[in-house]
Design a binder for these strands. Sequence first.
DNA 1: AAGTAAAACTAAATCGTTTTAGTTTCCCTG
DNA 2: CAGGGAAACTAAAACGATTTAGTTTTACTT
Lengths: 329, 329
Amino acid sequence: MTRSPRPTLKTIAQLTGLAVPTVSRALSGATDIGQKTRERVRKVADEIGYVPNRAGLRLRTGRTFVLSLVLSSEADVMNLTARLINGTATALRDTRYHLTITPFFSDEDPMRSIRHVVETNAADAVILNQILPEDPRVRYLLDKGFPFATHGRSNWADQHAYFDFDNFTFGRLAVQRLAQQGRKSIRLVAPPRDQNYAQEMIHGAEQEADTQGVDLHVMQRITSDDPATKIEDEIAALFQENVPTDGMIFGSANSCMSGVAGLEKAGLTIGNQVDVFSKEAIPFLQRFRPAIHALHEDALAAGEFLARAAIERIEHPEKPVMQFLEVPK
Amino acid sequence: MTRSPRPTLKTIAQLTGLAVPTVSRALSGATDIGQKTRERVRKVADEIGYVPNRAGLRLRTGRTFVLSLVLSSEADVMNLTARLINGTATALRDTRYHLTITPFFSDEDPMRSIRHVVETNAADAVILNQILPEDPRVRYLLDKGFPFATHGRSNWADQHAYFDFDNFTFGRLAVQRLAQQGRKSIRLVAPPRDQNYAQEMIHGAEQEADTQGVDLHVMQRITSDDPATKIEDEIAALFQENVPTDGMIFGSANSCMSGVAGLEKAGLTIGNQVDVFSKEAIPFLQRFRPAIHALHEDALAAGEFLARAAIERIEHPEKPVMQFLEVPK
DNA sequence: AAGTAAAACTAAATCGTTTTAGTTTCCCTG
DNA sequence: CAGGGAAACTAAAACGATTTAGTTTTACTT
């Protein structure tokens, strides 16, 4: 247990014969400190490896230098989530910011964690995913004027920072591709209906189905976040009942794998009686069944963007919010 | 921007007419504060929703109430990693602890992040994964007496808290199963040789191969952490060159998928000319190719255990370290 | 050379908490 | 009823940083 005491401003003050506030101001580059003094202080600080004490800083200024990533921990989104975390953390490298993770669980109030962060000042900004159209968390954060960025858009998207995957275009491209393969009767396994991006995806698909003159049905009893077995069973049943279907679209790689298991159980083969289109965060569907058509969603880039956007909110609240829409293909 | 000022000990002191230290001691249950005073203070604190200020606490006591999860961000381990994060965060629910994530990147010194945490007191404990036999991080943390827990064992495992999957038994079971299927010539795609758990897995497989009287070769040019295409190509080449092989063992689900893609490219079918055994963190290989034999590694439980073990180190350093070996099957 | 303004620094207070060292109050003993 | 001692509380200091309000020094003006 040899933790040698860290140097503080006081240490530097003693070493230079200056007062503590002088050292503080010198390091922050204030102009009321002499040029040569500033340089001398900087040099000493570097030599002894001075790093500001976060607690002192936070106590005095209220700044935490923490970004809080609050994310849903549904098993189905964990692939995407892992990349989101990785991207966010990557963007924070070489900044003064740290990242704390707060998964929230389906059995608890989504507002709880957010309120906690805001009320106890546990972070300077929040990043959230799984956004609802009228997401109460977004409303709350806007109301409080607390810096945040979202993965996905709310109805008030023009007012806040976000990164979103263009699910409307995804829906369009999916139907377009299947239509090109000569498919006429397509079913879509969409994300949970209350999620904004589900609506986008459905609209895109419907519009393109209209244009292409093909049939599109949204599966009503399952979503792309449902448990694997449920999806597998529903899809198997669908084909066993001979409901006319020659194209399938899945909102996530997980649901796609389950769905494919189901349709194979019913005796179909991809590329033969049916074509399959899916989204994926990590490229592996190609390996799962080479005949699947997959579109990549870049969660890594999303994480990086969101981190930068959140910091921008903290440090330059007067500037316009950063927003990005990833348009597939 | 309506952030109303949070109640502090001072607020309670004013409300009760007591001095600040009295309130502090009353809340912490010190016996030199009268019974009824303690109750009164507690009641007022609850009513106004007092939550201790972390910065104040930290500045005074040095306690951060943060666990730092330092993990490698190899794409291949991200599935497992996601579950590890989730498990750790779950265990921290309803404790005073927070979780910060520091991925470290293959291009940088693994010691950097650890040293930073220890030297700047950024956390009360560290959790690490991807442990080497003589891991310098483990040595450093032991040396400093800094609380930590590892996912995987080092050579000094008896001295520190860990959760590990028994890869020795995994190796044994894998060979055993393949031998039961009548396979005689088995190849193992093991984790990187410098990782401790790679050695364990290899030893287990070799020992069982001896017992069963079958052939076992460790693939020398690839590891289970290599990029998908590299593994695919190597495996494809292996079979195209007709190297006698009728059983394959993979150290991770990712490498398994790639490997299977390779052997199928060479025209083989699982369960036919060759049997495949693999580890997986999330059950989906069953769906990928139903004929694959897979063993589940519980990263969720690992995360939870590691969090509890780390906290135990912080709060009861005198007690024996918590250790757990997950023995498969 | 006296007066003044700018430049360069310092003293003191503050953020919220806990610890150490007292101090006051009260009850009991003899 | 004085004295002793336990019980219950308080004052002051400390952790490390920044901000506000001075103060000293220097340099310039007239």
